[in-house]
Amino acid sequence: MLTLTSAHRDAMIATCVRALPNEGCGLLLGSEDGTVTEIVASPNAANSAKLYEIDSRILLRAYRRADEESLSVLGVFHSHTHSEARPSPTDVRQAPDPEWHYVLLSFCEVPSVLRSYRIVEGSVVEEEISL
């Protein structure tokens, strides 16, 4: 389960709205039990409506801050602008860490849909988001 506040949810949505028409993205910082304490917005280094990549400098700074504050990088969020809020085959293939939470935001539906998944060895399982 991923636990976050409505402010965290709104920050993810705002980041992805600002990135339109491209995919938006960022990182989730928090405690290892899956409680988010901070949203780290990132530019989409892929600069694309169909691909995303967290900016490498943002990634390094997020890990360093997590170390300094005894937090964990819990996962990543990104938007799908033209498809549902479910990891694509590319998302699954490139998922960097089996411990992570993968949050997907879709603008295909109104209001926009936010879902969270675990991706372990190619297997995708949706998890509950506790607001």
């Binding site: 995919e23 993205c25 990182l27 280094a45 892929a46 694309s48 169909k50 691909l51 995303y52 990549e53 967290i54 490498s56 990634l59 390094l60 890990y63 990543v76 990104h78 799908h80 033209h82 498809s83 990891p87 694509s88 590319t90 998302d91 490139q94 998922a95 960097p96 860490d97």
Partner: peptide, 12 residues
């Protein structure tokens, strides 16, 4: 020297 997996994906 820090090694970090890139965090990337997409619908392509």
């Amino acid at each position: 020297i820090t090694l970090l997996p890139a965090v990337a994906g997409g619908t392509l």
